[in-house]
Design a protein around this nucleic acid. Structure first.
Length: 508
RNA sequence: CGGGCUGUAGCGCAGUCUGGUAGCGCGCUUCGUUCGGGACGAAGAGGCCGGAGGUUCGAAUCCUCUCAGCCCGACCA
C-alpha cells in the first residue's frame, strides 16, 4: 500500500526537528527575521499568544496580582549586584554602549557618544524591579507586592529555534515581595499550580510539577520549581518556572521593611514566568503529520466554513447559506466567549483551501455546498481525529460547543496517554542506559522518554551524566504529582541513598 | 571563539572543475478546461550570480580581500 499522503514533509518519524519547522511554516505562524536568532511572529502565531495571554492574565488577576511595566534597559551595575545572577546571565547579554550614530566617512554609520554606564537589554527583570521595590517598601503594611509584567526579554543564545529558544522572546514575569519566607514559598507554589492548571486545562498539555536540582536552578534563586511536559519525540520541555528567591535579591537591592514588632527585616521575594516557548510546546504536543492541531480553548478560530461555490448558478445562494450559518454559530458560547467563526471566501480550489486550514490546526472545518444547502445540512471534519460526517445544520449548531469540548478533552487524554506510555520506573543503570540509547547512533530514532529513578548524586554527578548521555534531571516531582512515590531508595548512578525518585529525560 | 560548509529570481537549487548572451522546480500573474481530498494546459512577469578589487577581448565561473548566513563544539526560558 502506498504511504498516505501527509501535508507535512518530512513526517515526525522521518525527521522530527525538520517536521517542527515545517509545521510552523505550513501554519504560517512565524519565520526567522533578518536579525540572527530573532523571529517574526505572524498573525496566526501571535493570536495564539494573545489567547495564552488573555487566559493567564485572568488567572493572575484572580490570584490577586496586578500588571505594571518596567523598563527594557537595566544599568550594568544593577546586574552586578547579585553574584549568582551575574554569573548566570553575563554570557548572554545584549549591551547598549552608545546613544547615537554618526557618518563614518565611508557612506555608513558608526556609533558615537558612548554612555557613561552601559545599559543591558533585560534578560529578566529581577534587578531593576528590585531596585524599585526597595523604594516602595518601608513597612510590613506595604506588603505583599504582587505585580506581573508582560514584556519582551533578550538572551543572546548561541543556538536558536523558532518559539523554543529565540534571542528575543515574549513572556510574562511575576515579581512579588513578602514579609515572611512561608508566604513567599506559598506564592511560589501557588503560581506553579496556576501554570500547571493552565497547561492541562487550556493547552491540553499534561505537566509534572516539581523542584529543580541545584544545578538547574535559576541564577540567584534558593528554590526553582518547574512544570515539565513530554513532547511527541519524548523529550522534555520546561514549560514554566516559579522561583523562591529567598532574601538574595532583597539583600542585593535593599528591599527592607519594618516589621510589626519594629525590627528592620529584609523581605522575601519570588519570580515566575512563562514565555512564547509555550507555543513551541503546543506544537510539539498536538501537531501531527498534516500540521498544527489546536486545542479549541486557544484556537484563533474555532470553526472555518468553506462555501463550495464553484458552480456559478448556485454560488450566491451557497454564500448566503454559509453567511447565515456563520452568524448563527457566532451566537454560540464556548469556554466563556462567543465562537470565532471564519468564512473562507477566497477564490481557491476546494482541496487547496481545505488543506490550508488543516495545516493551521482549526478544530472544526465545515463544508457547505449546494447539496448541503438543499438538505439544510453541513459536512463537518474534526481536525484531531480526522473524522468527517454530514449532519443537519441545526444539530451542528446545537452540538458545536460539545464537539469542541470533546476535542479539548481528547487532546489532553491523548497527550497523557503518550506520556504515560513513555514513562518508566528504572532501577539500575544498565536499564537506564539502554532506555536512553538509540538503536541507530548516526540518525537517532525517537527513543527513550521519562525515566523515574532514584538519585542521590551531587551537582558534579549530574553534570557528568549530562555529558555522558545528554540526560538530565527534569525535576523532582512534588507530592501527589505524576512520578512521585515518596519512597527512599538507591541512586542508580552513584549507588548513594536517595530520598525519592526524580524525572530523568533528554530535553530541549 | 575553534572546526566544516554555503551565498545565483519570492522559496528551493543547477551551472563554477574546463571563462563565451542567466537556467530548472515550486510559487506569482492572465486566459481556458476543471473543482465537495491537495488539478491540467497555454501565455507571461520576475536577477547588479553577497560586496570590493584584480587577470582577460570577455568573469556567476580564475585570483586576492571582505561581508553575511548555516552546521558541529562550549552556553541555554
Amino acid at each position: 500500500m502506498a504511504k498516505a499522503k501527509t501535508a507535512i514533509t518530512p513526517t515526525r518519524n522521518e525527521d522530527y526537528p525538520e517536521w517542527y519547522q515545517q509545521v510552523i511554516k505550513a501554519a504560517d505562524m512565524a519565520e526567522n527575521s533578518p536579525v540572527r536568532g530573532c523571529m517574526v511572529i505572524k498573525p496566526w502565531g501571535y493570536t495564539l499568544w494573545e489567547n495564552v495571554q488573555r487566559d493567564l492574565d485572568a488567572r493572575f488577576k484572580a490570584t490577586g496580582h496586578v500588571n505594571a511595566y518596567f523598563p527594557l534597559f537595566i544599568p550594568k551595575s544593577y546586574l552586578e549586584k547579585e553574584a549568582a545572577h551575574v554569573e548566570g546571565f553575563a554570557k548572554e547579554c545584549a549591551v547598549v554602549t552608545h546613544s547615537r550614530l554618526v557618518d563614518d566617512g565611508q557612506g555608513g554609520l558608526k556609533p558615537d557618544s558612548p554612555l557613561e554606564e552601559p545599559l543591558i537589554v533585560r534578560p529578566t527583570s529581577e534587578t531593576i524591579i528590585g531596585e524599585m521595590y526597595a523604594k516602595w517598601v518601608q513597612s510590613y503594611r506595604d506588603l505583599p507586592i504582587l505585580i506581573n509584567q508582560w514584556a519582551n526579554v533578550v538572551r543572546w543564545e548561541m543556538r536558536t529555534r523558532l518559539f523554543l529558544r529565540t534571542a528575543e522572546f515574549l513572556w510574562q514575569e511575576g515579581h512579588t515581595v513578602h514579609a515572611t519566607a512561608e508566604e513567599a514559598m506559598e506564592e511560589t507554589r501557588k503560581m506553579l499550580q496556576v501554570y500547571a492548571d493552565f497547561a492541562e486545562n487550556v493547552m491540553a498539555m499534561p505537566v509534572i510539577c516539581g523542584e529543580k536540582t541545584p544545578g538547574e536552578r535559576f541564577p540567584g534563586a534558593d528554590h526553582t520549581f518547574s512544570i515539565e511536559a513530554m513532547m511527541q519525540d519524548r523529550k522534555a520541555l520546561q514549560a514554566g518556572t516559579s522561583h523562591f528567591l529567598g532574601q538574595n535579591f532583597s539583600k542585593a537591592s535593599g528591599i527592607k521593611f519594618q516589621s510589626e514588632s519594629g525590627e528592620e527585616e529584609f523581605a522575601w521575594t519570588t519570580s515566575w514566568g512563562v514565555s512564547t516557548r509555550l507555543i513551541g510546546g503546543l506544537i510539539m504536543t498536538h501537531a501531527d503529520d498534516d500540521g498544527l492541531v489546536l486545542p479549541p480553548k486557544l484556537a484563533p478560530s474555532h470553526v472555518v466554513i468553506l462555501p463550495v461555490m464553484h458552480k456559478p448558478e448556485t454560488a450566491a445562494q451557497v454564500l448566503e447559506y454559509a453567511q447565515s450559518l456563520q452568524k448563527e454559530l457566532q451566537g454560540v458560547t464556548f469556554d466563556g466567549r462567543p465562537l470565532v467563526v471564519e468564512l473562507d471566501k477566497r477564490d481557491l480550489r476546494g482541496g487547496e483551501k481545505r488543506w490550508s486550514w488543516v495545516k493551521k490546526g482549526v478544530p472544526l472545518i465545515v463544508e457547505a455546498g449546494p447539496r448541503d444547502m438543499e438538505n439544510d445540512a453541513v459536512f463537518v471534519a474534526r481536525r484531531d481525529t480526522g473524522e468527517k460526517q454530514g449532519m443537519p445544520r441545526s444539530e451542528f449548531v446545537n452540538t458545536v460547543a460539545a464537539q469542541l469540548n470533546a476535542i479539548q478533552d481528547g487532546l489532553l487524554a491523548k497527550a497523557k496517554a503518550h506520556r504515560d506510555e513513555h514513562t518508566q520506573r528504572i532501577d539500575n543503570f544498565d536499564d537506564f542506559k539502554s532506555y536512553f540509547t538509540p538503536k541507530n547512533a548516526e540518525r537517532p530514532e525517537i527513543h527513550g522518554g521519562f525515566a523515574v529513578a532514584h538519585w542521590g548524586g551531587d551537582e558534579e554527578d549530574e553534570d557528568r551524566l549530562a555529558k555522558e548521555m545528554k540526560v538530565t534531571i527534569r525535576n523532582i516531582p512534588l507530592e501527589g504529582q505524576f512520578g512521585y512515590d515518596g519512597e527512599p531508595g538507591t541512586c542508580i548512578y552513584t549507588g548513594k541513598p536517595s530520598p525519592q525518585r526524580v524525572i530523568f529525560a533528554k530535553s530541549y
